[in-house]
Design a protein around this nucleic acid. Structure first.
Length: 419
RNA sequence: GUGAGCGUAGCUCAGCUGGUAGAGCGCUGGACUGUGGAUCCAGUCGUCGGGGGUUCAAGUCCCCUCGCUCACCCCA
């Protein structure tokens, strides 16, 4: 029986590797313009770290790949990067060296979930975190930077959903209000929401079921319950975005899944993605650093699902994604001439021209067929006659035109190929 | 974790109410022995996802299992 890759994980074949490299490179160059440096944290951490950050009872907490190492330590593959980055921030005492820390990352994350469209067990995220600054103007800059990134890679169809879920002072008041208002309608909510009423009451707000929505739409929005600080923070964020002509949708029912969020939260969604339409999400987490044993400093971040982003990009404009460029293809007729092919290949490579030799020594016809199948543009033909006359044939596969080129003039001719 | 749909050739799929597998594309070769893509000809193509059961007979019916896909839950 053939061994298959495990469920929910997949190979990224060369054509797609190129696409991942491209978006990561674009992210790197843009984020560095905003003062972010790259950080690389471990793929696994002590399970406890995620329990304390993501929340033990959230599904993300339950969906971790957790295992024991040989010494019996409980470790988990990271389900997201924020916890690791805060851990690193504290472990290296960054707060004693600088007031604000800006980092970006890209890499694989793992969650044990049932795979579906745009959702895998191993998936990649690109993200940023800023620790140490609580200004609403930073929130604006962070959102603006995310949009600039999507603009750079030419993703145009997207929508920003924005909300504020308050802080540890005002959110409990709102949750209490929800609990009171929903009490009488509890039996009319779907079974899942009845469970949420106990576990995570905010999540009832973004239930997709009609029945639940007709009840929740009558509830007062969070905004009414924000404390003065959170209210003024949110107001500045909204005004700042408008000043930058960034259009966003205020969504009072937007709630994030991870426990640690406070104040500003946002999601960016794409119409191309089906049920899993959020490809970028983030927000403030002003209490997390302190909860993980550090000083009470605010923070903000977002992350982008690379698979989802690429999926949306492919739907939108496949042609704007980078393609593998075909090599110049060297066909040698007759095994005895192989060393001349080798010599010519290396002289092209020294000019930075990608070159591949066909070592099959099959008939010219079948080697041309192979070249055609690989969609190459230029073929070099070397046979007995060429070796004797110290020349080669360059054949353009699109036009069918051929040039006889002397060996000493190959460098000159190679400029034609480069263009 | 829940639900639905689907697993037949390398790929896309056909195979009616059971009678021991087919098409197109691809691939290889030839027509064209040093010139690819078009056309024609020939050839290659299968443990019918796996296991068990019913039956004289199972790709087809039943059960189990694995996998894929989508949705729910949740999330990037």
């Amino acid at each position: 029986m053939m061994i298959h890759s495990p469920r929910g994980v997949e190979d990224i074949l060369p054509q797609k590797v190129l696409q991942y490299q491209w978006i990561e490179k674009e992210a790197s160059s843009l984020f560095s313009l905003y003062g972010y440096e790259e950080i690389r944290t471990p793929i696994f951490e002590k399970t406890e770290l995620f329990h304390r950050s993501v929340g033990k009872e959230t599904d993300t907490g339950k969906q971790m790949y957790t295992f024991l190492d040989k010494k019996g330590r409980t470790l988990s593959l990271r389900p997201e990067a924020t916890a690791s980055i805060v851990r690193a921030y504290l472990e290296h005492n960054i707060f004693t060296k600088s007031r604000e820390w800006r980092v970006w990352y890209a890499g694989p994350m793992f969650r044990y979930e049932r795979p579906q469209a745009a959702r895998l067990r191993e998936f990649r995220q690109i993200g940023i975190e800023v620790i140490g600054e609580g200004s609403p103007y930073l929130d604006i800059e962070v959102i603006e930077m995310a949009l600039k990134f999507f603009e750079r890679i030419q993703l145009t169809k997207l929508q920003i959903q924005l909300n504020s879920i308050g802080c540890k002072r005002c959110r409990p008041l709102y949750e209490k209000e929800l609990r009171n208002s929903l009490k009488k309608d509890l039996k009319n909510l779907c079974p899942i929401c009845q469970r949420r009423y106990q576990s995570n009451i905010l999540r009832i707000l973004d239930c997709k079921k009609e029945g639940c929505q007709s009840i929740t739409r009558k509830l007062p929005p969070v905004e009414n319950y924000l404390c003065p600080d959170c209210q003024s923070h949110f107001k500045k964020v909204k005004e700042g975005l408008r000043e930058l002509h960034i259009s966003f949708t205020l969504n009072p029912y937007l709630v994030r899944g991870l426990d640690y969020y406070t104040q500003t939260i946002f999601e960016i969604i794409s119409p191309h993605l089906g049920a899993q339409n959020t490809f970028c999400a983030g927000g403030r987490y002003n209490d997390l650093v302190e909860e993980l044993g550090g000083p009470p400093v605010p923070a903000i971040g977002f992350s982008i699902g690379e698979e989802r982003l690429l999926l949306a990009l492919r739907k939108e404009k496949e042609s704007s994604l980078p393609q593998i460029s075909p090599p110049v293809y060297i066909i040698i007729i007759g095994e005895e001439n192989y060393k001349w092919g080798y010599k010519i290949a290396n002289s092209l490579r020294s000019k930075k021209i990608k070159t591949k030799i066909n070592f099959s020594f099959k008939s010219l016809s079948s080697q041309l067929k192979e070249a055609n199948r690989e969609k190459v543009q230029w073929v070099v033909i070397i046979g007995q006659e060429e070796v004797q006359k110290k020349k080669v044939i360059f054949r353009n596969m699109d036009s069918g035109k051929q040039w006889e080129v002397l060996w000493k003039e190959i460098d000159k001719f190679s400029k034609k190929i480069g263009s």
